[in-house]
Design a protein around this nucleic acid. Structure first.
Lengths: 357, 357
DNA sequence: AACGATTGGTTAATCGTTTAATCACCCCCT
DNA sequence: AGGGGGTGATTAAACGATTAACCAATCGTT
């Protein structure tokens, strides 16, 4: 038995049934005029032979590769799995494959990556742009996933609303002095998140914003955020704009002897993999990636299949509301009402690190 | 000015210079017989027009798409960015694009994903198989990245040696009672790592292995690993088989009042993004992904370009040594000599969570 | 009964590239 | 001078699918 069966093509089926390839093509695509009985025979023959249309042939003729490009910005963005998976799934559902390209966080590499995708004949591109870059007309439809406040943005999570939800949650728990932790003030996404947070601060509450990159620039990389000191000043909650920052805050607090959430509540953003792995599990807020991907891919395919009228640059979501997808708060164990200890954490603790001598 | 310039093709160039398309093709590929002067003219004309060969046409004729498939197993594997980036880079260097497919951690989806890639005409597939699956002859070259002890493995990190390096490090620091933390005993990778660790235990040292999934199966999801209790038993170090487990261990210890690394050292595996973000920064061990990707892609392209003799199933690394890539220990702050506290961590700690009243 | 409309199918061109086969020359050698 | 051997280019056939144009029946109408 020869395992390397040759890939059957239209003419094989045509020969088998003694009809023309055109008829086979028509029968399978349901486009031309073929009698129902013959169409049935053709389809079953195609099935028997395990016929799968060759993309190259179709692409050459139709000019559509049915492949989308995906360009990601950061060298090792932990969001990558979520994004890639959602996009791949949505694309697969729409009959498209996904070709990836990494822009290694450089503008030049980003344009180069786009070029490579275009050369490969992708029908459209989903791009999470590097901070500060703006995608222009590249001769192919592009869906931009960044932030609703970025001009040209196609679709993205509603980071502003996400920030609001976090603060609402903390305020409802009774927190009145909250520290807001960002990383880089130049990021649209982070600014949206912080902005949303600030917008929901009721009168009588106090918030202080600290930027990790600023601290590191001043005090060297890896410098502590100084959260324990803030706890001593009376801050009872710490809302970070990313799970990575939240993790840093959490471990810093724990290491400094401030219990979480008893001494200070901590919240993150994005619900990355480790949010559930840490103890206490992280209260965080999550993008609806499947929804975002569906809108992005939908807008893209609409533009592609729209034909000549299709956009050659950024495409837009069908409606403004569709372009800003709400985020969902996920309450775990790292947030709780402030105040006197609920459980004590000082057992087993001594000056040798908690080991009885 | 019409921004939508039509994509130039061979015949456009041919017409411009009044030569045949075959000559143009020959000149650009350097294959046929073309006079040096004409070749030069053709190349410069191609350059001027911004000619880029259309993949569809070439693929149709040659049967090679110059696209590789990448199949990943876990729904949100945090290693994904590292792998995808390395593979993409190696592939791009070899002139290939990378089409992704997610197997959502199911065997059926994995075969289906492979099928989709094949339909799209990929020339070969890089696969990180789901636990326990074995990739057979799929009619296309496949590079398997799993573990050296997996039959059919093409290339992977030397997890065994990685485990050894971790233990050597901890033993050199003076640790004699070490807890080894795994997640699932069915994983080849985890078993290799644990095996390597055990193999480097000098006489007089004690090691205890705990499996997170077993504990969770018995005590419910999210159950504590019980590390603080082990610390009280005299264990001074904890070597986890993944950074995720290490993170869980670290936060559990910190939360229970055991200082790290003073009370207990903690090490991870893979050097994922958060290893540097936590405090103390995690001592871990990292795969040489670029090297692994280079071998995988190299073996694949060799099989592809080897033509008819090319393997239709798993391909092998050029040599056994090339197939097992050493891992590199990265020493940070979470590992230190055991024993009496180096710094005390009890300041600011009280029963209300460290907040002065 | 003849004509137009409809149905069911075929022919052939086309997409862009590669490549085997062929051809027209010029040069060199006997 | 005439044939062999290069050299530099052209011709034409493929790859596989799609689709416009065409053709041969059959059917319905008046």
């Amino acid at each position: 038995m020869d395992t390397r069966r040759v890939r059957p093509n239209l003419s094989l089926i045509a020969a088998r049934l003694d009809v023309s390839v055109a008829t086979v093509s028509n029968a399978l695509s349901g486009k031309g005029r073929v009698s129902p009985e013959l169409a049935l025979k053709i389809r079953s023959a195609a099935n028997d032979l395990g016929y799968v249309p060759t993309m190259a042939g179709r692409a050459l003729r139709t000019g559509r590769s049915h492949v989308l490009g995906l360009v990601l910005p950061d060298i090792a963005n932990p969001l990558f799995p979520q994004i890639a998976q959602a996009i791949e799934r949505a694309a697969a559902e729409a009959g498209y494959g996904v070709l990836i390209a990494d822009s290694r966080n450089e503008v030049s590499t980003q344009t180069e990556a786009i070029g490579r995708l275009l050369e490969r004949g992708v029908d459209g591109i989903v791009i999470v742009p590097r901070r500060g870059t703006r995608v222009a007309d590249i001769g192919s439809p592009v869906a931009v996933i960044d932030s609703p406040s970025t001009p040209g943005n196609t679709v993205s999570a509603d980071h502003w609303q996400g920030g609001q939800a976090v603060i609402e949650h903390l305020v409802a728990l009774g927190h009145r002095k909250i520290v807001l932790v960002g990383n880089n003030p130049a990021s649209n996404v982070q600014n949206d998140r912080i902005g949303g947070m600030k917008s929901r601060l009721p009168p009588g509450t106090e918030a202080r914003v600290i930027w990790a990159e600023k601290i590191e620039a001043a005090q060297g990389p890896g410098a502590p955020l100084g959260l324990a000191a803030l706890a001593r000043e009376g801050f009872t909650a710490c809302a970070a704009v990313s799970d990575l920052l939240a993790l840093r805050a959490l471990t810093e607090l724990l290491g400094a002897g401030v219990a979480v959430p008893e001494g200070m509540s901590v919240t993150g953003f994005d619900d990355l993999i480790w949010a559930q792995a840490v103890r206490p599990a992280l209260t965080t807020i999550r993008m609806d990636m499947p929804a975002i991907a569906t809108v992005a891919v939908g807008a893209l395919t609409a533009a592609i299949e729209g034909g000549s009228s299709g956009a050659r640059g950024p495409v837009m979501a069908p409606s403004p509301e569709a372009g800003r997808v709400p985020m969902r708060l996920i309450i775990r164990d790292s947030s709780a009402p402030p105040g006197p200890a609920i459980k004590t954490n000082t057992a087993n603790r001594s000056s040798n690190g908690g080991i009885p001598e």
